[in-house]
Simulated scan of single mutants.
Amino acid sequence: MTEPNGASPMEIGIDSFAAILPEPETGKPPSAADRMGELLREVEVADRVGLDVFGIGEHHRAEFLDSAPAVILAAAAARTSQIRLTSAVTVLSAADPVRVFQEFATVDLISKGRAELVVGRGSFGEAFPLFGLDTRAYDDLFAEKLDLLLALRETAHPIWQGRFRPALTGQGVFPRPHQLRLPVWLGVGGTPESFARAGLLGLPLMVAIIGGSFGRFRPLVDLYRRAGARAGHDPATLKVGVHAMGFVGETDGAAMDAFFPGWAHLTGTVGRERGWSPPTRQQFDALAGPDGAFLVGSPQTVAAKMLQASTALGGLARITFQMSTASLETSAMQRSIELLGADVAPIIRAARAAA
């Protein structure tokens, strides 16, 4: 477990897609209302055990309940006191930035300054036809809407004009958030242009790594840092976070056996739509192994792998676990969150403090 000298604290958290998957005993999914209640209890547990951040994704599909992440985060804000609450990610290309800003400013008021946004283009395309948008304008939509969202952070009365939305000529956009400046991270996959854009804008970067290895993303992270330096941004502000598949169990075997069924179910569902080969246990074991990008195992295994990931990417400010693909009863999911906060986090914090 090694880290670069001068390492700063690493934030540790969870991202949930509010997946509604079959229960292991019955093979049937829980009701949507019951699953939502379980999700809010998961946020409460994360807050209680001292994790730093909890994110809610955005999807418009039958197997997820997170099409309105700001509503879920507002409910979580009322039940928690310390943990930061973020989107993971807001599909900004398919949204109105004014409405997004108002919603998250409201969450920020409810939480007394704990709201954040991770914005991206999204890895699923359902939102575009749902809201009457042309997928051929995929990147142009995102670039323009990000420009407006960042303008809204700076003033309540923006003067702004674009191609895809009526101009703003000084109308007031309210409420304003509790924080002086609502934090906005840029969520990216593997497109070099997205990494460079985040650097040029000086935005913190959240990298979704859901396969392969952490090290293969190092050239893209370096591109982000170079772009930020060329744009004149302080290197200390160019924070890098990673969103990865993860689950903590009492032992490596227990964690892998618990996480695999839900991962295989969801990956198989998406894979059939995209023409992928069916997922296998061998493939999963490789991703959860020493060279793979899954953070699945005992507390000691997971902590060691997190520190290795940070070293491979030149230092990480945040790692969030996407563990909602585990098809588990509530108590098992909550136990994993407890292990992450009580056992994994102290190892990480001690290693960073020593560095």
Rank of each mutant, 00 (worst) to 15 (best):
T2Y: 12
E3P: 06
N5M: 11
A7T: 08
I14C: 06
F17A: 07
A19M: 12
P24E: 07
E25F: 14
G27Q: 12
L39W: 10
L39Y: 13
L40C: 08
R48G: 11
G55N: 07
G57P: 04
H60E: 10
A68D: 06
I72M: 08
L73I: 15
R79L: 11
I83C: 09
A88C: 08
V91N: 00
L92K: 12
D96F: 12
F101Y: 15
E103C: 07
A105W: 15
V107W: 06
D108A: 10
S111V: 02
S111H: 02
A115L: 00
S123H: 01
G125M: 09
G125W: 11
A127W: 13
P129Y: 10
F131N: 05
G132Y: 15
T135C: 09
D139C: 00
A151S: 15
A151N: 14
Q161H: 09
F164H: 13
F174Y: 13
P175A: 01
R176A: 08
P177S: 01
V184L: 12
V188S: 01
T191I: 10
E193H: 15
V207F: 01
V207D: 00
G211W: 01
F217K: 04
F217R: 03
R218L: 15
P219T: 09
A227P: 04
G228H: 02
A229G: 10
H233F: 03
A236T: 00
A244P: 08
M245E: 07
F247C: 07
M256C: 05
F259C: 11
H265E: 02
G268W: 04
V270L: 03
G271N: 13
R272K: 14
E273V: 09
T280V: 13
D285M: 04
D285C: 03
A286Q: 02
L287W: 11
A293C: 01
V302H: 03
M306P: 04
Q308N: 14
A309N: 10
A312M: 10
L313I: 05
L316R: 06
F321S: 05
Q322Y: 13
L328C: 11
E329H: 13
T330Q: 15
A332Q: 15
G341F: 13
A345V: 07
I348Q: 00
R349E: 03
R352D: 01
R352P: 00
A353M: 06
A354L: 14
